[in-house]
Write a protein that binds this DNA or RNA. Structure first.
Length: 535
RNA sequence: UGGGGCGUAGCCAAGUGGUCCAAGGCACCGGUUUUUGAUACCGGCAUUCGGAGGUUCGAAUCCUCCCGCCCCAGCCA
């Protein structure tokens, strides 16, 4: 079995392509074959070398290797040209002088048959001569085209004498000016499959109507083997868009910072967001391959991401919205260093030291002045555990003139060092924290859905009308434990009790920026939301 | 009014005549464990397979009709 992943180098890959990549490489591996990477570079006016490089990088990042099997449709331009002449000689293709507009009018409609072009029956020698002159550059773009001679009355519009070659005086990324006529997708794809020995040509549903044409060309040309096309439904993900045209608009109109904006469903965006390739592969496997139009919930992807990251991400502590806490009975001075487990899911990751001191920061959300019974965190007179450190009890609340809590006073129990009470005393909540003296400052960027609607534009308006104005939240002045100063760009870490994050490439020395890949499941938040609903 | 597809729980998806009074995952709801209200674990979650008829001892699976949704009129892929 031989398959192929055939991107057109006119844009960046997104998670929909990841489904195709995993399918093609996966199924080939499963049946002991291989998968080719083939660039479908038949339209030089839209394609660029930069996209070729970006695509190769993304496929590799996803974890696939095409070995020596790198191909370009443009490698076949001469063969394709020869086959076009073959069709002309056989009376199965002709040069048409009609303009694009005229061809459209002659094509008929969905319910009415088309009409023959006046040039449909011109002698093969005349078409051959004209086709060679097209190739020689005698005619302007659009002046003439080569059409397959099939059936102008077919119910399948793709069979109404489809254009198979057009004149394009454009610089091609690979063949430069060697050609001024280019085969269309239909004339290049199946034949390239045959040349490469592709047995299973897997594509999405919208090409189902092209299969009769695909087969017609294979039958009428002396190709080396017979490839077969099979179709499956493309991926739709809720709260985002997956079309190159729309993604391009998001970038061009400045709705996002670029193709690799962490909110983008592009592979470069997901990578920058911190999504592991393994999670995308797992996701692709779990959603399956069918012919049913589907809309996969974004939560499904998130679940795959959490599953991988839970096992692999080392744990750290960082406080996003700091509230200062002074531990009044703790000695002034340098404090001490406590042991913290790097990843309970993977003992091999070992431990690290976390500095503790008289002044620390905790999360503002972890304190309530008048907490409800179910609130397991800190409140006046309540005792909680500081993860890997001590039990503390809140003894005082300091407010500013506006009445906002600006600092807490607490006492700690020296007998609970490490987080366990010698007397077996239990505590309901465990808080993450950071030493005020030793914390590093960081910026944290939280990402939400790019759109407010599951299907952007479904309300009838432009899809851009549904862009979520709050898809990005930038938090400045966050406090992180010192170990986070050594974070590597892109490497996943879990900020305990909060989520998975990774250092963004925009970070500078001393000014780290962390992207939140995905939050941890938050049962408390759900309980709160439910409470609010009830009133 | 042409041609091509698709319809199994909120979402994805197994299943193509009996072992299906329908797998599994996500989500959701309970519970256990827990120095992350995380993770892990246990339990719950479609008398029903778009609808109606029919064939059959027996249907999600076969037949008929109906309904709904998607794609196609680029010299894009």
């Amino acid at each position: 079995m031989v398959t192929r992943f055939p991107p057109e180098p006119n844009g960046h890959l997104h998670i929909g392509h990841a489904k195709a990549i995993c399918l093609n490489f996966g199924v080939a591996a499963e049946f002991g074959g291989h998968c080719n990477l083939r660039f479908d570079d038949t339209n030089p006016v839209k394609e660029e070398q930069a996209y070729i490089e970006s695509i190769e990088k993304d496929v590799r990042w996803l974890g696939f290797d095409w070995g020596d099997h790198l191909y370009y449709a443009s490698d076949n331009f001469q063969q394709l040209y020869d086959w076009a002449e073959h069709l002309i000689v056989q009376g199965k293709a002709y040069v048409d002088d009609l303009s694009a507009e005229e061809i459209r009018r002659y094509r008929g409609t969905l319910t009415e048959p088309g009409r023959d072009s006046p040039h449909r029956d011109r002698p093969a020698e005349e078409s051959l001569d004209l086709f060679r002159r097209m190739r020689a550059g005698e005619f302007a773009d659009g002046a003439r085209v080569l059409r397959a001679r099939i059936d102008m009355a077919s119910g399948n519009i793709n069979l109404r004498d489809p254009v198979i070659y057009r004149i394009l005086h454009a610089d091609h990324p690979r063949t430069r000016d060697a050609w001024c006529i280019y085969p269309t997708y239909d004339f290049a794809h199946g034949q390239s499959d045959a040349i490469e020995g592709v047995t299973h040509s897997l594509c999405t549903l919208e090409f189902e109507d092209h299969r009769p044409l695909y087969d017609w060309l294979i039958e009428n040309l002396p190709v080396p083997m017979v490839p077969r096309q099979y179709e499956y439904s493309r991926l739709n993900l809720s709260y985002t868009v997956l079309s190159k045209r729309r993604l391009m608009r998001l970038v061009d109109e400045g709705h996002v910072s670029g193709w690799d904006d962490p909110r983008m469903p592009t592979l470069s965006g997901l990578r920058r967001r911190g999504v592991p390739a393994a999670a995308i592969r797992d996701f692709a496997g779990r959603i399956g391959v069918t012919k049913t139009d589907s809309m996969v919930e974004a939560a499904y992807l998130e679940s795959c991401v959490r599953e991988v990251l839970n096992k692999t991400a080392q744990r750290r502590m960082a406080v996003l919205n700091p509230l200062k806490v002074v531990i009044e009975n703790y000695a002034q001075g340098d404090g001490e260093e406590l042991d913290a487990v790097n990843n309970p899911e993977n003992p091999a990751d070992g431990k690290r030291k976390v500095p503790f001191g008289r002044e620390i920061y905790i999360e503002r959300d972890d304190f309530m002045e008048d907490p409800p019974k179910k609130f397991f965190r800190l409140g006046p007179g309540r005792e909680v555990r500081l993860r890997w450190a001590y039990f503390i009890t809140c003894t005082g609340v300091i407010k500013n003139d506006a009445g906002e809590v600006v600092e807490l006073r607490c006492t700690y129990d020296p007998e609970t060092r490490g987080g366990d009470a010698a007397d077996g005393r239990k505590v309901k909540g465990t808080l993450h924290w950071v030493s005020a003296a030793r914390a590093i400052d960081a910026e944290v960027r939280l990402y939400g859905n790019l759109f407010t609607e599951e299907v952007p534009g479904s309300g009838g308006g432009e899809f851009t009308d549904d862009i979520n104005p709050r898809s990005l939240t930038v938090l400045a002045g966050c406090k992180a434990e010192p170990a986070l100063a050594d974070a590597a760009v892109g490497e996943a870490v879990q900020f305990e009790r909060q989520g998975y994050f990774c250092l963004d490439a925009e970070s500078t020395p001393g000014a780290p920026i962390f992207n939140r890949t995905v939050g941890l499941r938050d049962t408390w938040a759900r309980i709160q939301a439910k409470g609010k609903k009830k009133g």
